[in-house]
Write a protein that binds this DNA or RNA. Structure first.
Lengths: 238, 238
DNA sequence: ATGTCTTTGTGAACGCGTGCACAAAGATGG
DNA sequence: CCATCTTTGTGCACGCGTTCACAAAGACAT
């Protein structure tokens, strides 16, 4: 079996904590909104509120990038947008391929948040030959057999998997074989990849299950129906 | 302004750490696969590999639920499926409404992972009156104005938002007003909700940005182009 | 120039999550 | 019934992430 790590042990990449990296896109989004409203500067307090985080955390996050603020004033919005974009690598163009053009794949292809942040959809791929040539988001769907040549020709390093679970591992292997080193996986499967390849997963039903857990807990507490709310181990009845 | 927390401060709900809750759906998925292959028991080592986590972590996670394993043997697959399902609240039916039936909303409506885990789509809602009545995943799209009555009639407590960012907060307010207490947000916005309402967000472009960060880092290290890989602060050139 | 006021940047403490390593528990075979 | 072997359950230590609280820095007014 291959190595199959998708959990890197929280290595801080170039001194920037993983948790901070995960929040940078959040700040960037809030800053972009301010920029569009032509707001010149913003304090850590205001920006933190807009991004939905604690202001101390935000300041510490920014401190990893350098001293980009002015005491007594705040942060220059445009300058910060540029710095964060650069840090995230969004000042360059990232060609991506989307594999699996079902409902979800089509939704991703149409998603505006990609193009506006330097991600360019290089190609849409699907195993269903009858889909080939159909236009989705202005791009023709191409057959999966073109994967290798497309990845090579466009120097694609990021792949998005929106296939059924059963096809995900095979698609992954082909992507990695063709040179892709980052994968965003929407299929509900654990992917095995060699070292050096990053995988991030988005599982729609997992999020819903976590909500259900808390929802159940809320119902239990309010109505006092089950789980007497203490922390007794609650040995199962039978 | 409303409270607008979406980060609960890692309160452990009924003694089960938040991090563990987030992994339970992962274990459940792996166990379901084993169950379908009629595997009777599984060791922590095997299950951990299938779920893509450390085996010690898995054992500790299960220890929060109780002592459900047998030393020298492992865990009974069926029993564990039941226990985790019960813990997550998946033994009961959760009616959900999906608001915003664009590409993404349609993808969610068609997603099989919902129905198979006790989530029942009670209704599809959209503000576009011209969509009303159209069938998506076998369900008729209904107008957003029916939101309140649908939520009340079906006792919906979970709402999924797949609208454009601009509409998300208003939809949230209406959902909360109608009695929804858990929201899964796909719109790229920070939502303000009163205390007692849980929000989880899934942002497609954020994940991609995090990948881009690491991708850039890999490129920099390999080619020795930028960032000389030491952890010097790297003061920006100009 | 000097003082005041605002806001950043960070040292330090704390708490959660992770992983090691091992003792306890039970199965299995003789 | 006893010995051996497998696998769980967990005590413990460590490290990352979060938050508080404050000193340093600079803007701005006088």
């Amino acid at each position: 079996m291959a190595t199959g790590r998708s959990h890197r042990p929280a290595t801080r990449s170039r001194g920037i904590p993983e948790a901070t990296v995960a929040r940078l896109p959040l700040y960037l989004r809030a800053l972009t909104a301010l920029s569009e409203r032509s707001v010149p500067t913003v304090s850590s307090e205001e920006l933190a509120a807009a991004a939905g985080v604690n202001s101390a955390k935000l300041r510490k996050d920014f401190s990893y990038l350098g001293s980009y603020g002015t005491r007594g004033v705040g942060y220059d919005v445009e300058y910060l947008v540029y710095q964060i974009s650069r840090e995230l690598g969004l000042t360059q163009d990232w060609p991506v391929v989307i594999v699996g053009i079902g409902n979800l794949g089509a939704a991703l292809a149409n998603y505006g948040g990609f193009a506006s942040r330097g991600f360019r959809v290089a190609a849409l791929l699907d195993a269903d030959a009858s889909l080939a040539g159909r236009l989705v988001a202005g791009l023709p769907v191409r057959h999966i057999d073109e994967l290798e040549s497309i990845v090579a020709d466009n120097q694609v390093s990021i792949g998005v998997i929106a296939t059924p679970a059963g096809a995900a591992q095979e698609v992954t292997d082909r992507l990695v074989g063709a040179g892709v080193t980052s994968i965003l996986n929407f299929a509900p499967t654990v992917l095995s990849v060699p070292d050096g390849v990053d995988v991030r997963k988005v599982d729609l039903s997992i999020e819903l299950q976590i909500l259900a857990f808390h929802e159940q807990r809320k119902a239990g507490e309010t109505e006092g129906r089950q789980e007497p709310d203490g922390d007794v181990p609650a040995v199962m009845p039978a």
